[in-house]
Simulated assay, not measured.
Amino acid sequence: MIVALASAHPYDTIDADLPLLVDALSQHGVETVIRYWDDPQARWDDVAVTLVRSCWNYIERREAFLAWAERIPHLQNTADILRWNTDKTYLRDLADAGIDVVPTHWDVRTTEELPAALEWVVKPSVSAGSADTARWAMPDDAVAHSRALQDAGRTAMVQPYIASVDAQGETAMIYIEGRFSHAIVKGPRLTQDSAAGTEPTRAESVVATTPEPAHHDAAERVLGICRDRGLDPLYARIDLVEDASGRQLLLELELTEPSLFLPHAGGAADRLADAVLRRVAG
């Protein structure tokens, strides 16, 4: 049996999850190959399953990426999940379904349209990591960033900066086949009034954590909405932040190409490998 791990150059060399997953699958007697989703010479019909992993350059060619996904047999996560999840307008769907989402204003063009806040985060709705994302203290700067994204033909998101991130970070809840696997805390990535970078990765501090019941409750409500929509992701990462009242807010639901932080949780790579084999057998 062969399992393909879909990546992109040069991200396959910095994806810390890949070596652990390759090793875990090899322990089950499974051969793995790492192939680039945008390599026209790559074959995908000779493998039992293809896992979407570090395809972090798709943000520049989303429609091409989705067209590729539609062509790939036995893809995880599936093409319908990727189409919904690669544009952060999915947050509207989740908010409409009753999920507590970080308040988001779309395509802001004037300071009067900004949400009430001391600082704002501005980013495009199609992005990976912190690409083209910045944190602003001045309303004019936030609006200018939002307008620039729109003028480039992109959907702009403007959110209040959640102050707890500086002290507590973001809690990322990782699930495999709908079951909790492990959690980490990511330290703050955005510095105030820093120019938006174009790369989809930025240095971040990461530590393993034991989540509180409130984290589990929030994450499982999000996954419940996915099930209601007929989505059955092999893997999911739910990024949560805490508001001033102590409520857990959804920052992002990562179903496309999330770092799963496998090096920070003993046995996590084995759990994912087991889940892959169950999908193949099923």
Rank of each mutant, 00 (worst) to 15 (best):
D239E: 06
P40R: 00
Y235W: 03
R83C: 08
V22T: 14
L82N: 06
V101T: 11
G153W: 13
L51W: 04
R279K: 07
C226F: 11
P211N: 00
D140N: 12
G187H: 05
A116K: 10
V206Q: 03
G98Y: 07
E199K: 10
G282W: 09
S127V: 11
L51H: 02
R279E: 09
A142I: 08
L66D: 01
D228Y: 00
N77Y: 04
I238R: 00
T110Y: 02
P10M: 02
E70Q: 13
H182S: 07
T32M: 10
W44F: 15
T104K: 03
G197C: 10
A64N: 10
A236W: 07
T78W: 04
K186W: 06
F65E: 01
A218C: 13
T50P: 07
D80F: 01
A131W: 08
L262M: 06
R247E: 11
D12C: 04
D193Q: 03
D132H: 13
E31W: 01
A218K: 02
E242T: 15
D243V: 07
A69R: 03
A95F: 03
R53Y: 08
I34T: 14
E204H: 01
I184D: 04
L277K: 02
L5M: 12
Q76C: 14
L82P: 05
A148K: 09
G197K: 05
S164C: 09
S245Q: 14
L277M: 13
F65D: 02
R35C: 02
E31L: 11
G98T: 06
L114K: 04
A67H: 10
I81W: 05
I72V: 15
A64L: 14
I238L: 06
V22S: 12
L262K: 04
D140Y: 01
L5T: 02
I14V: 15
E199W: 12
S194C: 12
L82F: 05
A244D: 14
L231M: 15
G98E: 03
P19A: 01
G187A: 08
N77I: 03
G197P: 14
F180H: 15
R71D: 11
Y175W: 12
D15K: 01
S146N: 10
D270S: 13
F65L: 05
T89A: 04
E254L: 07
L25T: 07
K88L: 10
A64M: 08
L223Y: 08
E170P: 11
T89F: 00
L190P: 12
A24H: 09
E31G: 09
A219Q: 01
A95N: 01
R154E: 14
G178H: 06
P115D: 04
Q41P: 00
A183S: 13
